[in-house]
């Protein structure tokens, strides 16, 4: 028995030694998978941390989950792209100090043979209508993400309810997985340009529709309301927000390139 105890205590000691990550001045930022997976945060956060000494811990989720994290007080600051929902949550008193930060845009991708012939259309709403008319497969994120929200908004304008149609697949997964499922199914997918640029080499798909202002994708940042959740680090969160919309932050965003050298996000803070 004695040997078992000494083995146990050695293991415990090792674990104690390994667990040395002291928490410096840090805030928790809830954001979307697109910002992390694209590498944007990997680019700008070190600059911010060097400027201010505040560490930003990033939890990347779908927009729905990220907003919920903020509402529950599990984050200090939220950085997502679903402007209507964001404004609504601010109006409900969950968040304060919301600012536009940057944008990218959405595109509709699909197999190059374009079975619903949406190529050349200038309106995303028309493109969706045609897809529904031809009953060609459309793969939806179906995960309450910003992209999903945007997609639903477009469907709403077409006055078509795709839910439950057999050509409409809600996969409930991240952007890359949704694209890959669309690729396998030779289907149409609404995607953000950043993810598309990062993954297009692995897909037999191309952009079939782009440029409609409806497809504009605004990212916004806001702080969790300290009056709702007194424990949040509002001051540090505000430092982060102010930095993001400052010239320094905006320049940092502008300077970001993905690993293929593409510029993904255009800063537009006012």
């Amino acid at each position: 028995m004695k040997r078992v105890y000494s083995f146990g205590s050695i293991v415990c000691l090792l674990i104690l030694l390994l667990s040395g990550n002291a928490f410096a001045d840090s805030i928790l930022c809830a954001s979307t998978t697109s910002t992390e997976n694209s590498g944007l945060f990997g680019h700008i956060l070190p600059i911010f941390e060097k400027d201010t000494g505040i560490e930003v811990k990033l939890v990347a989720r779908g927009t729905g989950a990220a907003l919920e994290m903020g509402r529950r007080g599990d984050a200090d600051v939220v950085f997502v792209h679903a402007k209507e929902q964001e404004l609504e949550a601010v109006a409900d008193g969950f968040f304060v100090d919301r600012h536009d930060v940057m944008y990218n845009d959405f595109v509709i991708i699909g197999s190059p043979d374009d079975p619903a012939s949406i190529k050349g259309l200038t309106s995303a709403v028309d493109a969706f209508k045609k897809i529904a008319d031809y009953q060609t497969v459309f793969v939806s994120r179906g995960d309450q993400s910003g992209t999903h929200t945007k997609e639903l908004a477009i469907w709403k304008r077409t006055a078509i309810d795709p839910a439950g149609q057999k050509w409409y697949l809600e996969v409930g997964q991240g952007m890359e997985k949704t694209q890959r499922i669309g690729n396998e199914k030779r289907a149409y997918v609404l995607t953000d340009r950043g993810t598309w640029l990062a993954t297009k080499d692995q897909l037999e798909m191309e952009i079939l529709m782009e440029g409609d202002p409806v497809l504009f994708n605004q990212y916004g940042i806001m702080a969790v309301n300290p009056e709702k959740h007194s424990h949040v680090k509002y001051e540090q969160a505000m430092t982060f927000i102010k930095w993001m919309i400052s010239d320094t932050g905006q320049t940092a965003i502008d300077g970001f390139r993905d690993k293929l050298g593409n510029s993904l996000f255009i800063p537009n803070a006012k």
Binding site: N21, L28, T33, E36, N37, G42, K57, L58, V59, A60, G174, E176, K177, R180, A198, T199, Q202
Partner: peptide, 22 residues
């Protein structure tokens, strides 16, 4: 854990993330 880089990122969550990124 939230898969926070440097804090709560472990092997399996890294694998999931990289698979997600393609």
């Amino acid at each position: 854990g939230g898969n926070i880089a440097g804090y709560t990122r472990v092997m399996t969550t890294t694998i999931a993330l990289e698979a997600d990124k393609g």
